[in-house]
Design a protein around this nucleic acid. Structure first.
Lengths: 345, 345
DNA sequence: TTGTATGCGTTATCAT
DNA sequence: ATGATAACGCATACAA
């Protein structure tokens, strides 16, 4: 196999009959350049198929063009949506996305991330929930001089470092939707302790209940861990109640699917016997039967905004209007899993 | 914010009282080194918290430590599983994973990938199905001197460049399972034309049907595009048949979920009225109702093997037994979506 | 407007 | 076993 040696800036300079610096100026779009020489150099660049070596650039500029994505696998679809949103912005820049999944259960997580940051020295990092809620992590980044953007369920940092959704309002709206359908006993499957998203979503639930003048019953609130099985367990407890709730709001779709599962097992028909509302609008929400009413938050849009905040104008990226926003609104997607409570007809 | 200047090899050399080359030797585990000096240097490295600059290394070595993942979004869970398998191996090495999603519908896909390869010059790339089936793409990598590993449903390259699953056998086993349950009219939802996986899975279906001495009926074979909606459309056509099939094998879980959806819409009970088998064992398979009997292929294991093939011993990675294998077996996961055909009791 | 000298942090060559 | 020096490909400071 022949060795396809990449042409370097020297080759371009030699063939174009100029100095490397001039080529460098062309590459970096220096304004003070003779139009003739620019064209000539660009011609040679095109002929040779020359591409600047990113590593050499990084070395000379004393900064690289890596954006890190640090997360602890919230859910597959979300991670992928974030990756897509990020890459959509990064694609036209010289930045690359590198991944760094971590294990929030590990006591060495912070050290692990520190090692990653010190080794790669990424230009910036994107922090996904739930670890994005960790203030020590944000401080670690700041201390190391690595810019960061956190994604979360509420504004927990300054706008420049944050893209947030309004989980509380969104859930309040979702539960109000159930109340408007006639439900009075509404169960909540809350997220795990220590998650800001869990807190926000529960707060939204409570706000809606109280605003409607309904009693806030602790037995109607069960915690899960955002996983399918925990949704099943929570549903068991909720459906064992007498009288049992006529509707359940689940803090994410996966647990909501667990509720549906249990309902099926018990011979309950959804939504006639039990209404269910989820959160996330992952693909499973529209694929299960019946299709799930759920809250959709604009993950890809938020990721794009985050990317713009991170690279903000650097490396060819242009901050768009997305770049300014840091709070994003979620919307209720109405499907077939909600109906009036039994006997309400 | 203070500038946390990284210590360089020069700092280490100066403080340890040796030359940079000696430090370099320590880092790279050169065998010819005095034990004393090695320990002394390692001590200083630890004290300073020195980490070699990957960009500078890449420049000097004329090769970088990037592994690219090129894919056209087969499905979220698969992409994520691959990422995890890859990163599991890469984590202990100096390699980083960079992403490059593409659009196989675009006529410029190959040019786009070429630009990516020429710019980043990754050490190696991992190609996911379906674009991994594209021979021109493999040739492009080879021509550019970029090593690659393809992931696919059958061995379509030499072992060093391939991790393959045995889709054909796996599907054959799955359909035989249906036949053993008593089914004689078994529908197939095939994958889209142009996909090797679609060909292999259809072949497995046909082998099972013929081996059982059943008639191979073209009306029982409908093509989908691996997406949920296409599964619904295919199911409509299959269930409109008279007599209708008593079982359906779907070439992936997402389409199988579509079948389940249509069955529900038509008031058919699964598995009593209709048995369904899927392929992939994505989370949705176990989360829908009833839980789906499906074929699981060892994606993460395959990805680990691929990573070992790519970095093979380089950069601290040690080829394990995974590294040798290039053919991986899938297994049938039996859940609740299969029963004897109606009236068979 | 363009060129020269120098540095970025590392490894390779060839000494000693 | 260790060190001086020259790459690697690019950018910056300073001249011209």
């Amino acid at each position: 196999m022949r060795k396809p040696a990449q042409p370097t800036i020297n080759d371009v300079a030699r063939i174009a009959g100029v100095s490397k610096k001039t080529v460098s100026r062309v590459i970096n779009r220096s304004p003070l350049l003779n139009e003739d020489t620019r064209r000539r150099v660009e011609q040679v660049i095109a002929e040779l198929g020359y591409t600047p070596n990113p590593q050499a650039r990084a070395l000379a500029l004393r900064r690289n063009f890596l954006i890190g994505l640090i997360h602890d696998n919230p859910n597959a679809q979300m991670v992928l949506n974030v990756q897509h949103g990020l890459l959509e912005v990064l694609r036209d820049t010289e930045f690359e996305l590198i991944l760094h999944p971590v294990d929030r259960g590990s006591p060495t997580m912070l050290d692990d991330i520190r090692a990653f940051l010190e080794k790669q020295r990424p230009y910036g990092v994107m922090l996904l929930p739930p670890i994005s809620e960790n203030d020590s992590l944000a401080e670690l980044c700041a201390g190391l001089g690595v810019r960061y953007v956190r994604m979360g369920s509420a504004p927990l940092d300054e706008a420049a470092n944050m893209v947030a959704s309004n989980d509380r309002e969104a859930v309040r709206g979702a539960v109000e939707h159930l109340i408007a359908a006639g439900h009075r006993r509404i169960g909540l499957i809350a997220g795990p302790h220590g998650f800001r998203s869990a807190v926000e979503r529960q707060a939204g639930y409570e706000e809606a209940i109280e605003a409607a003048g309904l009693p806030l019953q602790r037995t109607l609130i069960v915690h899960g861990d955002y996983r399918f099985e925990s949704g099943m367990r929570a549903a068991e407890r909720l459906l064992d109640l007498a009288p049992r709730p006529t509707a359940v709001f689940s803090s994410n779709d996966e647990m909501a699917a667990g509720v549906l599962h249990v309902a099926h097992q018990r011979g309950l028909t959804v939504p006639q016997d039990l209404s269910i509302v989820g959160f996330d609008d992952t693909p499973i929400a529209s694929h299960i039967w019946p299709p799930l009413t759920t809250v959709r938050w604009p993950i890809a849009t938020m990721a794009r905004a985050a990317a713009l905040k991170l690279v903000g104008g650097a490396g060819g990226a242009r901050p768009g209007e997305d770049g300014e926003a840091s709070l994003f609104v979620s919307t209720l997607i109405r499907r077939a899993s909600v109906a009036p409570p039994p006997g309400a007809g």
